[in-house]
Structures are given as structure tokens and as C-alpha cells.
Amino acid sequence: MIEIKNLVAEIEGKRILDGLNLTIHDGEVAAIMGPNGSGKSTLSYIIAGKEDYEILDGEVLLDGENVLEMEPSERAAAGVFLAFQYPLEIPGVATMTFLKAALNAQRRAREETELTTPEFMKAVQDAAGKLEIPRDMLKRALNVGFSGGEKKRMEILQMALLEPRFCILDETDSGLDIDALRVVSEGVNALRAPNRSFLVITHYQRLLQYIVPDTVHVMANGKIMRSGGKELAEELEANGYADYKAQEAA
């Protein structure tokens, strides 16, 4: 279970999160929707451990443990995974080398035995096949020269390999055409499991037609303004975010 309690954060004196509360149960897919600048991406970065933010209050509990007190790599080993909105290009680091380093670093941190090369190769190739990732892409430098869709598929490949407890998808639909959106969504859906939770951040309802959420939360001005079921996404698509912006201003 993930419990975000009264999270308050600033960047350079500007309040981005303002007492955010959210609980995501095991196996639940929670979607956060909200207008630009509502703090959605900030929330994902703060949970993953980016240093740029000052956290003034609150906690993020993963199975009762506050991940905010951990290093980013410790959070990853504990099961937090952020699929980046803009996955970074790392020239000179072969994708395979990176995947193996990441997987084995997490296994070491959890005091598990590292995978042998044949075990690792099999795991990667199985996951890559499902995501329609060609083998030669795995030999290239990580994300370098990859299209937007390829980068997002690579994020989901990493998610599949690392088997996290809690996956955050930060606008995974941005920059994807319909075919890529379908492949990526199928990849995510295949990872849905009773002991795995998802936080899907998006502007648009479209992604949620592919990855159907259990709960939908509207975020504006740094907090959750309203929560509901998947029908809330459809309502937002019809009415926009004006109500929530107005509600805050009032």
C-alpha cells in the first residue's frame, strides 16, 4: 500500500505540493489528472527522489516505510519505479549494460543473488519481445537516437524487468502515436498484479481507455481536489479543468 500523507513541497520558494493526500492499495491503478502546472510531475519526481525540491512536510509510505528518507537507489530497490515523461539519453552506455547494472544493483541491495548473463539475457529478450523492441535496439546506447515511442517502450521494458511494487507513469502517453500507445498500454496491463500498484499521471482521458484505472483523482494547485472511479475521467474530458481552477480561486 502507498500512502501519501500531507505532502508539502517547494522549489525555489514556490509551493508546488500543498498538503497532498492519496492512498493507493495493492493491485490498484490510480490515475491522476490535472491541468498543466498542477504539480503532477513534481509529485512523481519527489516520490522517486529527485533532489531539486524542498520537502516541508508529509511522508510517502510504501508498506509503512517512508521512502522520502531513502536515497533514490534505495527507493528503487524497495520497489518504486518512475517511468519518465522524457527518458534521458545516455551516450556511451549500451542499453544491455545499463539494464544489467540496474537489475543487479537492485538485487544486491535486496541481498538477492545477481542474475547470470544467460538468465539476464532470457529475461530481457522475453520482455523485449512482448513490447516489440528489436534486439539491435538493446545493443545501442540507451535511448540515444530512439524515437519518442521507442523511449517509452524502453521505460516499460525496464519496468517489466525490475518488477517494482509501485509504478509511476509520468505522462507516458505524451509523444505516442496510437500504435505505440497500444503497445505501451498492453505492456503496462500485462504487469498489473495483485501486489503491484500504479500511479498513472496524464492530461488526457485517452490513455485511460487503454489502461483502465480503478480510481481517478483530480489534482490542481498541489493537492487532490476530487476522487472517483473511472467515470470521473470521462467527466473531465467533457468539462475540462475549469471547475477545479475556479474552486481553488474561490
Binding site: E71, S73, R75, A76, F81, P87, F98, A102, A105, A109
Partner: peptide, 10 residues
Amino acid sequence: FYLMARGLPR
């Protein structure tokens, strides 16, 4: 950060 978020210690 990207690498650390994937589990690599600093």
C-alpha cells in the same frame, strides 16, 4: 538521477 532511480547507488 535517472540512473539512481533505476537502482544504481550514486
